[in-house]
């Protein structure tokens, strides 16, 4: 048993229990943050992506122990920001959402990329989104969406 304390969507939280559980399960089951999805469960699809200290990680591949003392933002937390509004609108505008399963992860990947690099080239966008799979859109619309977010969100990142 360990006590793990971290910042979740801006609030300090503590979890007592097995440090060897996946962050994904803690977020979905204990905190009822179900925006993140489990796709592959092996780090390959990005459906479970969250931000750890502003950087994208796959919550299926992070154990609770490693989150101790860090800051986690999920899609629910990101939703409160003006940057999210820009990403949401650009995804809508570009038609980058079909079934929506990959979308929370795609939005997190976009935020992580633009936080690091507010004016990415197309190649930067492809690299930034390379860990996120989408079975519906064929990616081009997602790349367009990220491009549009970086243009429309001028100054926000």
């Amino acid at each position: 048993m360990s006590k793990i304390t971290f910042i979740l969507n801006g609030k300090t939280v503590s979890v007592e229990g097995n440090p060897g559980v996946r962050l994904l399960d803690v977020l979905r089951n204990e905190f009822k943050l179900t925006g993140i999805k489990e796709g592959c469960g092996e780090g390959e699809c990005g459906a479970c992506a969250v931000l750890l200290d502003h950087k994208i990680v796959n919550s299926c591949s992070v154990v609770l122990a490693n989150v101790d003392g860090h800051e986690i933002t999920t899609i629910e937390g990101l939703k409160e920001t003006s940057r999210y509004q820009v990403i949401r609108d650009s995804f809508g505008h570009a038609g980058a959402v079909q079934c929506g399963f990959c979308t929370p992860g795609m939005v997190i990947a976009t935020e992580s990329l633009l936080y690091d690099n507010p004016t990415p080239t197309e190649e930067d966008i492809k690299i930034g989104m390379s860990g996120n799979l989408c079975r519906c859109t064929g990616y081009q619309s997602i790349i367009e969406a990220v491009k549009k977010a970086s243009e429309d969100g001028d100054g926000l990142w």
Binding site: G20, D25, E38, G43, N66
Partner: peptide, 20 residues
């Protein structure tokens, strides 16, 4: 020795939602 765990988690996990 558990570092990032990107190899260890895939090698040791069994079913979803269970602790590793």
């Amino acid at each position: 020795i558990y570092a990032g765990g990107t190899d260890l988690i895939v090698q040791n996990r069994t079913v979803s939602e269970a602790p590793i």
